[in-house]
Write a protein that binds this DNA or RNA. Structure first.
Lengths: 212, 212
DNA sequence: TAGATTGTTAATCGATTAACAATC
DNA sequence: TAGATTGTTAATCGATTAACAATC
């Protein structure tokens, strides 16, 4: 690891680099040049070299990047070697789909508990669903790292509050209500996924003539 | 409408402005200043004034912004007054959740058809699910604007190709495979939602000490 | 009029790209 | 050695912020 104080623009690209590195590794590719990676990823070779040089030192002049080093190097910065205990609150709609989604095959993320009143007591994804009233206490007692919020929008703020009080480190919010880091607490990372805004963004791109 | 050639940074923020304008309108707020909006949205008042002045002229010096004008003005640029015929391909997991999700209550987006082999013939969201083999022809014959891809990853490229051949204007891609505009066609807008990258991004933020 | 708040300009800041010397 | 490709610097480009005159 070279520089922990990466520009946020670079840090935001890391998960994608990491995915490509993993896929190359899975395909038994040993080395790759910035030029090849550039055409695979659709970004400039210059940007790739600039980014990767800030992240670490896995390149070899005249040769390219060693895929294995790339994968483990990015993994370290991205935090893929730790384990993140994760829970989902709300299983009506998106929550249930996420519980079964391959995204939770990520080695570093472990789904530990599911909360939903209507489905409490049933089994999903090898877990027994718990009622929402258990949410805050369970998260507090079980060192929860990530809370996925998929409750109805009206419950969003309340549930986010419970997650923060329970001491989670990150919130992945699908409720449609903005949670935002500044509303939570300084040391809680928040990613708001607003499907509404996102679809409207696509409409906007279409309306203004696609790519431009 | 003032300037169609908005910087993309501004255009990307429009859906969120639009959402806040709609909510203010729903709450019967008649006027709002950049300062008030700033604290609601968590961005600077300066950026709001800069952005909105590029978008149109709904501000009044000494008064603020007329919420109704704001809503209709942004709606026009964002393309909210048209109708987008939309289909979903793949109902295992995320696709089914999306079909039932309030995101499709957006007035300008109309869900017209659902495609899935396992569920073909059943009813969902007031529509009879069609088999995937009908996908391309149906989209061609029914002037489809947006195709939501939620098929298994292995089918992603094939299904995206079918959508492009059918002449859709936009693709909302949840498959986990990159589709990207440059892989599709110049006049097709693509929004890739990669849940995997997104969750890894949250892990990365947590690992590097939350917000910084 | 006085107070408030926009629209706009200029200054700053950060991100991307181009170019090339260093080096395997 | 010759060829290839990185790492890094400098140049460009774009986005954000600060400041204030214009104006309701």
């Amino acid at each position: 690891m070279k520089n922990t104080n990466l520009p946020s623009s670079v840090r935001r690209r890391l998960p994608r680099y990491y995915r490509f590195a993993r896929e190359l590794l899975g395909a038994d590719v040993l080395r790759i040049s910035s030029g090849e990676l550039s055409s695979m990823m659709g970004i400039t070779a210059s940007q790739i070299r600039q980014d990767l040089s800030l992240v670490g030192e896995f390149g070899l002049q005249g040769y390219g990047y060693n895929v294995k080093d790339l994968y483990s190097g990015i993994g370290e910065i991205v935090g893929a070697n730790r384990n993140y205990n994760t829970v989902i609150a709300g299983l009506t709609g998106i929550g249930l789909a996420l519980a079964k989604h391959p995204v939770f095959d990520l080695r570093c993320v472990t789904l530990r508990a599911l909360f939903d009143d209507a489905l409490a007591g049933t089994e999903t994804a090898d877990l027994t669903v718990l009622p929402m009233s258990y949410f805050e206490r369970w998260c507090t007692e079980n060192e929860t790292d990530i809370a996925v919020l998929a409750v109805p929008r009206e419950m969003a703020v309340e549930t986010a509050g419970a997650a923060v009080r329970a001491g989670v480190s990150g919130i992945w919010n699908f409720t449609g209500e903005d949670i935002r880091a500044d509303r939570a607490k300084n040391d809680v990372a928040v990613v708001d996924i607003n499907l509404h805004d996102c679809l409207m963004g696509l409409c906007c791109e279409i309306h203004n003539g696609g790519r431009q």
